[in-house]
Write a protein that binds this DNA or RNA. Structure first.
Length: 873
RNA sequence: GGACAAUUAACUCAGCGGGAGAGUGCUUCCUUCACAUGGAAGAAGUCGGGGGUUCGAAUCCCUCAUUGUCCACCA
C-alpha cells in the first residue's frame, strides 16, 4: 500500500540506489538491438548544478528513458569538462588566499593542486545529476583530460598539423590582460559602452598641416606606423605617399591609400596600429607596414612606448591625452558610444594584440560541416538555428587554439634546444630530425578547452582506437544543448566528427532555451535571482522539479520558472499519487484481467482516450516535443482519469455486482499501469514507487516496454457517446447551479432517448455524477408539464423534476438563452452552406459536417421551443 | 548595420488554414470514505495595428509598431 502522503524524500534516494544496483543504466552492445546514443554536454568540474543543467539533463533523461523502454540499446554517456580557464581561475584564487601565486609554486605543483581540486570538487555535479534522477551509464564516465580523451586530443592535433590544418603564426588575436591568455573570437563578448572619440592632428613632415585622425583608444598611437585614407577621397588625395610625424613619439609614418577606410566616418583618416587592431593589422599586411607592439601581456606599455613605458593602458591613455592637449595636437573630444570586447570569463576589456599562437585553418573544415546541415543529414530542432550556424560557419576565421595557461592539454609540439626545429608528435621525440640533437622543450601553452570538447562524441567512445563502443554507438542520435554554445561547441563537434571519423557526430541537435525567472529575466549570479534546483528537489522532490521544467516547453524556447509553477506540478504529482492510492486501495492481491465482453461505456471511453493519448505521446516524444507530450499526459491524468473515470468507476467498485467490480478494477489497474509507463520518462521516481506496488507488476518500470497504440482499444463510437453523456452531466450541474438548487439536493431525472440507448447504458453515471434521486425512462415528455427543467442533447433529453423548486421565469430565461445560442449556431451553419464558394470549394467531409450541424441545431431549436411552449412562454 | 524570435483571458503559455484552449489567479458553492496539494460551476480574449491571399485567417503573405536575442563591429 502507498503511504498516505506523497513524500518524495522517503523514496527517491532508495529507488535510485536500487536502479544502480540492478545496473539498469548500463548500455550493452547488443546486435539484436538498435543503438540509441546521447553524449552529455559535459558540465565544468567547477560547476554546481543550476537550472540550465537541470533543464538540459531532464530533457536528456526523458529521451533516453523513453528510448530504453522502447527497446533500444540506449546509452547516455556522462562526463565532465576540465574547463581550462574557469578552473585555472579558481585554483589561482585558492592560491592567492594562501599568499601564493602560480609562478611561485611552478607548473608541476600547480597541476598537482589542480588535480587535487578536481578530485575534491569535480564529482560534485555528478552527484547532483544523480539526485535529479539521471540514468547515465556511470560505468562509462569520462573526463576531457582523462587518458582516453587526452590521447584523442594528441592524435587529432598531430593529424591536423600533418595535414597543414594546424599552424603556428604571428597574428592578431584577442588578448585578456587579466587572464593573460589569448582567446578565440567566440570567447569575446561585445558590450556597448560610453567612450570618447579623440581627434588628433598628425602634422606633415614638410611642415604642412597634415591630417586629423579620430580614435577611441589614443594609447595605441604609440604603435602607429601609418595613416590610411580612402583612395577615392579627393580631400586627401594629395597627401597619399607623404610622410607625417607621429606626435609625442616623433616617428615618421606614411599616408597610405586603402579602401578599408570609410570616407563618411570620423575624419576620413584612420591611424593604423597593426599590432593592436585587427583591421589595422590587415591594412598593415597590405602595405608592408612595420608592426610595433606597445603593450605587454598585462596591458602595460612596454619599452616601445618610450616615456610611457610602465604605465597601465588606461593610465597611459590619460597621460597621452593630457600631453596631446598640452602640445596642441588634440583637436577635439567627442562623446562616443561604441562596442567593446570583453573576456567571457573575467569580463576584462580585451586587447587585440599581435602574438605568436597556434591556429586551426578553418576553411577546409567548414565546407563539409556546412554541407552536413544543409543536406539535412544533421537536423537542428528548431530549424531556425541552422541559419545562425550557417552565418557563422560561412564567415568563419581561423581558430586560435593556444592558451597561455597551465591547466589543460599541453600542446604536443617540441622544439629542439639545439637548432630550434619544431616536432609535432604524440610523444616527445628522442632525436631531432634536423640536427640530431636530443634535447627538447615542449611548447608551454595548453589548448583551448573547446578543442577537446569538439572531440567529445567520439573521444569518449574510444577514438582513435577502433573500439566496439565506437563502432556500435557512433554516430550519436541526439545532442541536447543550449543555443548559446552553438559556436563554441556544436559547430566544432560537427567539423571534427566529419574530419576525424568521416561521419557526422549526431543526427539531431535539440536546442534548449534559457531558464528565466518569473519576470522573464535571465537567471544570473549578479542579479541574485537564480533558483537553486537542489533546493527545489529538497523541498518538492526531483519529479516535481523535472515536470515543472519539462511540461509545456518548446524546443529552443526560453521558459520561465517560478515557485508557483513548481507548486502546480507538485500538486499534479500528488494527484497521480492519490489516484494510484485509490486504485491500489481497492485492489487485492490477485491480478484481475480485463474482460472486453464486460466493458462498460465508461471503460471503452477511457481505453479509447488512453489509446489516443498513447499515440499522441509517442508521436511527440519521437519529435522531441517533450513539452507537448507532458501536457497531454497532464490533461489525461487529471481530467480524464481522475475527474471522470475514477468517479464513474466508484459506483461499480462499491456495488454488489462482483464480476462488474472485478472488471472495473482490472480496467483501472490497466489504465493506471500504462499511464505510469507513459509518464515515467518525465517523473521516474514516483512512477517507479507506485509501479512496484501494483499487483502483478514485475521488475522495474524503467525497463518495462513503452506503451504503443493498440487496435483493440479503439472504441470511437462509444467514446463519442460517452463524451455526450459527460456533456449532459456538465449541463445538469450547471443548470442546478444556475437555478439555485443546492448541489446536495437529489432530483428525479426523466430521460427521453432519441431512438438510441446511450442514456440507458449511461444511466448509472447520470445518477451518480449528476446526483439524481432516480433516473426514469419515458417514451415522451408530455406528462411532465411545467414541473421540470430540461437538458437537450443530440442523443437524449434529460428532464429534471424540480417540483416547486422550478422557477418558471428563470427556466424560461435560461431556455431563451439556449435557444439564442442554438439559433446562432444554426445560422452560422446555414450561412456557410448558402455560400456558393464554400459549397463548391471546401472539402466534402467539411460540407457534410456542416449539414449535420445545421440539422442538429434545427432540431434542438424545435425542442427548446416546444419546451418553452409547455411552460407557457 | 544584418538576422531571428515573440506579441492570444489579469499572469504564464499551447494552438499555426475550417467553430478561441490550458494552467495559475479571480467569483460562487461543496470538508461525500484517493486527494482541500481537493471537487463542482462560473466570469473573463474585436488572438499587437493596418493591408493582402482564400469560399474561409489567431493560423499563410506584405507592412508598421513594441519587446527580446544573436551576429557584425566604422577607426
Amino acid at each position: 500500500m502507498l503511504e498516505k502522503n506523497y513524500e518524495p524524500k522517503s523514496f527517491e534516494k532508495r529507488i535510485y540506489d536500487d536502479w544502480m544496483e540492478h545496473d539498469y543504466f548500463r548500455a550493452e552492445i547488443d546486435p539484436e538491438k538498435t543503438p540509441f546514443t546521447i553524449v552529455i554536454p559535459p558540465p565544468n568540474i567547477t560547476g554546481q548544478l543550476h537550472m540550465g543543467h537541470a533543464l538540459n539533463n531532464s530533457i536528456q533523461d526523458a529521451i533516453i528513458r523513453f528510448r530504453r523502454m522502447q527497446g533500444y540499446a540506449a546509452l547516455w554517456l556522462p562526463g565532465t569538462d576540465h574547463a581550462s580557464i574557469a578552473t585555472e581561475v579558481k585554483i589561482v584564487e585558492q592560491l592567492k588566499k594562501q599568499g601564493e601565486t602560480k609562478e611561485m609554486i611552478g607548473r608541476e605543483e600547480f597541476l598537482k593542486r589542480a588535480y587535487q581540486w578536481k578530485e575534491q570538487y569535480g564529482g560534485r555535479i555528478i552527484e547532483q545529476l544523480k539526485s535529479l534522477g539521471c540514468s547515465c551509464d556511470w560505468s562509462r564516465l569520462a573526463f576531457t583530460m582523462d587518458e582516453r580523451c587526452s590521447n584523442a586530443v594528441k592524435e587529432v592535433f598531430v593529424k591536423l598539423y600533418d595535414k597543414g590544418l594546424i599552424y603556428r603564426g604571428s597574428r592578431i588575436i584577442n588578448w585578456c590582460p587579466d587572464c593573460r591568455t589569448a582567446l578565440s573570437d567566440a570567447e569575446v563578448e561585445f558590450e556597448e559602452e560610453d567612450g570618447f572619440f579623440w581627434h588628433i592632428r598628425y602634422p606633415a613632415k614638410d611642415g604642412g598641416e597634415g591630417v586629423v585622425v579620430a580614435t577611441t583608444r589614443p594609447e595605441t598611437m604609440l604603435g602607429d606606423t601609418a595613416v590610411a585614407v580612402n583612395p577615392a577621397d579627393k580631400r586627401y588625395a594629395h597627401l597619399i605617399g607623404k610622410t607625417l610625424i607621429l606626435p609625442l613619439v616623433g616617428r615618421e609614418i606614411p599616408v597610405v591609400a586603402d579602401s578599408y577606410v570609410d570616407m563618411e566616418f570620423g575624419t576620413g583618416c584612420v591611424k593604423i596600429t597593426p599590432a593592436h587592431d585587427p583591421n589595422d593589422f590587415e591594412v598593415g599586411q597590405r602595405h608592408n607596414l612595420e608592426v610595433i607592439r606597445v603593450m605587454d601581456d598585462g596591458g602595460v606599455i612596454n619599452e616601445n612606448g618610450g616615456k610611457f613605458r610602465g604605465l597601465d593602458r588606461y593610465e597611459a591613455r590619460k597621460k597621452i591625452v593630457e600631453e596631446l592637449k598640452a602640445c596642441g595636437a588634440l583637436v577635439k573630444i567627442e562623446p562616443h558610444r561604441h562596442n567593446v570586447g570583453h573576456c567571457y570569463r573575467c569580463h576584462t576589456t580585451i586587447e587585440p594584440i599581435v602574438s605568436r599562437q597556434w591556429f586551426v585553418k578553418m576553411e577546409p573544415l567548414a565546407g563539409p560541416a556546412i554541407e552536413a546541415v544543409r543536406s539535412g543529414e544533421i537536423r537542428f530542432l528548431p530549424k531556425r538555428f541552422e541559419k545562425i550556424y550557417f552565418n557563422w560557419m560561412e564567415n568563419i576565421r581561423d581558430w586560435c587554439i593556444s592558451r597561455q595557461l597551465w591547466w589543460g592539454h599541453r600542446i604536443p609540439a617540441y622544439y629542439c634546444e639545439d637548432c630550434g626545429h619544431t616536432v609535432v608528435a604524440k610523444e616527445e621525440p628522442s632525436v631531432c630530425p634536423a640536427c640530431g640533437g636530443h634535447r627538447f622543450r615542449q611548447d608551454e601553452d595548453v589548448l583551448d578547452t573547446w578543442f577537446s570538447s569538439a572531440l567529445w562524441p567520439f573521444s569518449t567512445l574510444g577514438y582513435p582506437e577502433k573500439t566496439a563502443d565506437l563502432a556500435y554507438f557512433y554516430p550519436t542520435d541526439v545532442l541536447v544543448t543550449a543555443y548559446d554554445i552553438i559556436f563554441f561547441w556544436v559547430a566544432r563537434m560537427i567539423f571534427s566528427g566529419l574530419e576525424h571519423m568521416g561521419k557526422i557526430p549526431f543526427k539531431k541537435v535539440l536546442f534548449t532555451g534559457l531558464v528565466r525567472d518569473a519576470q522573464g529575466r535571465k537567471m544570473s549570479k549578479s542579479l541574485g535571482n537564480g533558483i537553486d534546483p537542489l533546493e527545489i528537489i529538497d523541498k518538492y522532490g526531483a519529479d516535481t522539479l523535472r515536470f515543472s521544467l519539462l511540461n509545456g516547453i518548446a524546443p529552443g524556447g526560453d521558459t520561465r520558472f517560478s515557485e508557483e509553477k513548481v507548486e502546480g506540478c507538485r500538486n499534479f504529482v500528488n494527484k497521480l499519487w492519490n489516484a494510484s492510492r485509490f486504485v491500489l486501495m481497492n485492489a487485492g492481491e490477485e491480478v484481475p484481467k480485463p474482460d472486453p465482453d464486460r466493458f462498460t461505456l465508461a471503460d471503452k471511453w477511457i481505453l479509447h482516450r488512453l489509446n489516443e493519448v498513447t499515440a499522441e505521446v509517442n508521436a511527440n516524444m519521437e519529435r522531441c516535443e517533450l513539452g507537448l507530450a507532458g501536457a497531454k499526459l497532464y490533461d489525461f491524468i487529471w481530467s480524464d482519469f481522475c475527474d471522470w473515470y475514477i468517479e464513474m468507476a466508484k459506483p461499480l467498485l462499491y456495488g454488489e455486482d462482483l464480476p462488474a467490480k472485478k472488471n472495473t478494477l482490472a480496467v483501472l489497474i490497466s489504465v493506471l499501469t500504462d499511464t505510469l509507463k507513459l509518464i515515467h520518462p518525465f517523473i521516474p521516481f514516483v512512477t517507479e514507487e507506485i509501479y512496484q506496488k501494483i499487483p502483478g507488476a514485475s521488475g522495474s518500470i524503467m525497463v518495462a516496454a513503452y506503451p504503443a497504440e493498440r487496435e483493440d482499444r479503439r472504441y470511437p463510437g462509444e467514446a463519442s457517446a460517452m463524451e455526450s453523456v459527460m456533456e449532459v452531466i456538465r449541463s445538469i450541474r450547471n443548470l442546478k447551479a444556475e437555478m439555485g438548487v443546492p448541489p446536495a439536493k437529489k432530483l428525479n431525472f426523466y430521460v427521453v432517448e432519441h431512438g438510441g440507448d446511450a442514456a440507458h447504458k449511461a444511466s448509472l453515471y447520470l445518477e451518480k455524477l449528476g446526483n439524481a434521486a432516480e433516473v426514469r425512462f419515458l417514451k415522451e415528455a408530455s406528462e411532465l408539464s411545467g414541473q421540470a427543467a430540461v437538458i437537450n442533447s443530440t442523443l437524449f433529453d434529460v428532464y429534471l423534476a424540480m417540483g416547486e423548486l422550478v422557477d418558471r421565469e428563470k427556466e424560461l430565461a435560461r431556455l431563451a438563452a439556449e435557444r439564442k445560442n442554438a439559433e446562432a449556431e444554426l445560422n452560422r451553419a446555414r450561412g456557410k452552406l448558402s455560400n456558393q464558394g464554400f459549397v463548391s470549394k471546401a472539402p466534402q467531409a467539411l460540407i457534410d459536417a456542416e449539414r449535420e450541424k445545421a440539422e442538429k441545431y434545427a432540431r434542438l431549436c424545435e425542442q427548446i421551443e416546444e419546451k418553452m411552449r409547455a411552460l407557457g412562454g
